[in-house]
Design a protein around this nucleic acid. Structure first.
Length: 588
RNA sequence: GGGGUGGUAGUUCAGCUGGUUAGAACGCCGGCCUGUCACGCCGGAGGCCGCGGGUUCGAGUCCCGUCCACCCCGCCA
């Protein structure tokens, strides 16, 4: 039977008591972490989020029987006196280990069922069970730490942006659907049958309008919603640190964002060097086969096209002759791979979509290439140019430059992981810049925005906007940490004319544009300052700084890869009356 | 939508080429124990082997389907 808390207040948290508190009368409130019942003597560890304190109940104490009936995770109030532990019984593993509390009263504020997994023991539990009992998982040290870190990072960001003169401004959660980009989450309107709000994929248009409205510097820790497949680094709803500045240049955005990230790193005691490295998109794609290269390790992709213009090996020769190329990377330490390991590597490349993977290496009596037709001379040349030592293995693939690099880029990541080539505790930050503005969409016979339709072209490329859109680069930039995209942004189009041209290239008629963004286009005509900004993925920042590989570990209540909340069982069916009220009928 | 890994006690796992009564550790329950701190010792309970079908004299094990969790591709302006 639970006893009452009444007006009882704790005097100390369970992590607070030190030898300087010896003699004090204290009240501790917390959970029973562990009980050590020695028969005539019971030790009780009482826990809260601040720590653990040992409580002693000795023989002859009328509370002994009560203490023996305690179980894990009961909620208790402990009254007692702080005593110094004898030298032999000090526990150096916990900060409160020099003292213990001799009990004078003990109240059970609540009992607890035996939890499905232990809070006190640091054991692996399947994610399914953890998510089902998230309130228990959250009690465990890892999530207690991660959620605490997330709080500190959030607060550091708020302090930083306040110091930099940013206003924190909220934007609507119920807003207008814009068919570009990710799938929208729709919210039916009861008042307007058949009409829907959309949840924001990002506050993009609102923050631009805030610049037009004269708010200079805006920041928001904004929840965003995208109805797309989930991944370790993607949830249906996620949090952006969304910012925008009037009169912004790319270098101003870089400076502000680098400062913000430095503030985040400060919370884990790491000083990062600034300015960050910068790399054009084209170089990232060519050397790493990715627009978010992981620079913690080498294994850069190299181009060997010119070596194979006259190759006796038809596949390479033809590739180079038809606008393709031959690229490869050196895998350190793989020179001694067995036939089985080599076959495994080739199979791995096939799984990634490669037509084939060719390898070459030095041998005791010369050189070896998996395709004889390449010839010893070419093999020697390519091994020499690539810097392959007798220890290493060179792998090669041919095809369209971007496709080859993308393939090798994925192989690069897999190989690095398998061969343990990724150093721990390294932080490689960089800016990827100069993205193309458009992508050709062959299916729809039009251009697509690489970023979003409000991204400004580089000034030097403006003249080619209509004549050669594919060659136009954007004032867009992503910030990358250890191969994760932490954020992205751009300088925006601020004149009506350029915006209209871009919409036209995207295949949007004036009427379409007016229907979707009419209010926004109109706002551009009322004195829009040049502006730009960026959004950082807060979940990703927290995950990386917490040393986690999934953002679920820094989100209190995440969803599974099937988009289900296992704790509250959402989504779920609703009462038919609710649907009727919304004029919605569900078809089977 | 596609590919991969996994699903056996409350939890984490083992269970070989199909063959007695499906095991271990931790947890849980009971007992003993005055300085433990992952307390120790003794004893005990606990299983729809994810679910459905099939092959077989016999299925945790093989086959097909399906559900769930995780990873990747597609998707994520």
């Amino acid at each position: 039977m639970a006893e009452q808390l009444g007006s009882l207040a704790r005097t100390h948290t369970c992590g607070a008591l030190r030898s300087s508190d010896v003699g004090a009368s204290v009240v501790l409130l917390g959970w029973v972490h562990r009980i050590r019942d020695l028969g005539a003597l019971v030790f009780l560890d009482v826990r809260d989020r601040h720590g653990l304190t040992q409580v002693v109940i000795e023989q002859n104490d009328p509370l002994l029987d009560k203490a023996k009936r305690l179980r894990s995770e009961f909620v208790v109030a402990v009254f007692g006196t702080v005593e110094r532990r004898s030298a032999e019984t000090v526990n150096t593993a916990v900060p409160t280990g020099e003292v213990e509390v001799r009990v004078s009263d003990l109240r059970v504020l609540n009992e607890a069922r035996t939890p499905p997994f232990s809070i006190a023991e640091d054991q692996n539990v399947s994610e399914e069970t953890r998510l089902r009992y998230r309130y228990l998982d959250l009690r465990r040290p890892t999530l207690q730490h991660n959620i605490g870190l997330r709080h500190r990072i959030t607060m550091a960001l708020r302090r930083y942006f306040d110091d930099q003169g940013f206003y924190d401004i909220e934007t609507p959660i119920l807003t207008k659907s814009t068919p570009e980009g990710a799938r929208d989450f729709l919210v039916p309107s009861r008042v307007h049958p058949g009409e829907f709000y959309a949840l924001p994929q990002s506050p993009q248009i609102f923050k631009q309008i805030l610049m037009i409205a004269g708010f200079d510097r805006y920041v928001q820790i904004a929840r965003c919603f995208r109805d797309e497949a989930l991944r370790a680094d993607r949830q249906l709803e996620f949090t952006q640190v969304d910012l925008e500045m009037a009169f912004a240049t790319p270098s101003l955005v870089f400076e502000i964002v680098e400062g913000a990230l430095a503030a985040c790193f400060g919370e884990i005691g790491v000083e990062i060097s600034r300015p960050f490295r910068r790399m054009p998109y084209a170089e990232a794609m060519a050397k790493y086969g990715s627009d978010k290269p992981d620079l913690r390790f080498g294994l850069e992709i190299q181009d060997f096209g010119p070596l194979f213009t006259d190759s006796p090996f038809g596949i390479f020769r033809e590739a180079v002759a038809h606008g393709g190329t031959v690229r490869g990377l050196v895998i350190p330490g793989a020179g001694s791979y067995s036939r089985r390991e080599l076959d495994g590597l080739v199979e791995q490349a096939r799984q990634l979509g490669a037509a084939g993977l060719i390898y070459a290496r030095h041998t005791a009596d010369g050189v070896q290439c998996s395709v004889k037709a390449v010839g010893d001379e070419s093999t020697r040349a390519v091994l020499a140019q690539s810097g392959t030592t007798p220890n290493d293995l060179l792998v090669l693939a041919s095809g369209a430059p971007d496709a080859v690099s993308k393939l090798l880029g994925q192989l690069r990541l897999q190989v690095a992981k398998q061969a343990n080539l990724i150093p721990e505790g390294k932080w490689e930050l960089l800016w990827v810049t100069d993205f193309p503005l458009f992508d050709w969409n062959a299916d729809e016979n039009r251009w697509d925005s690489v970023n979003h339709p409000f991204t400004a072209p580089r000034e030097e490329d403006l003249a080619r906007l209509e004549s050669d859109p594919g060659s136009v680069l954007a004032k867009a930039y992503d910030v990358i940490l250890n191969g994760w995209e932490l954020g992205g942004g751009s300088i925006r189009i601020h004149d009506r004319e350029t915006q209209a041209t871009v919409f036209r290239l995207l295949g949007l008629s004036d009427e379409d544009a007016r229907h979707r963004f009419g209010f926004f286009l109109e706002s551009l005509e009322y004195g829009t300052p040049p502006h730009g900004g960026l959004a950082l993925g807060l979940d990703r920042i927290c995950a990386l700084l917490a040393g986690e590989t999934s953002i679920r570990e820094v989100i209190p209540f995440p969803k599974t890869t099937q988009a289900v909340d296992l704790m509250c069982d959402a989504p779920s069916t609703v009462d038919p009356r609710q649907l009727r009220e919304l004029s919605i009928r569900v078809t089977p």
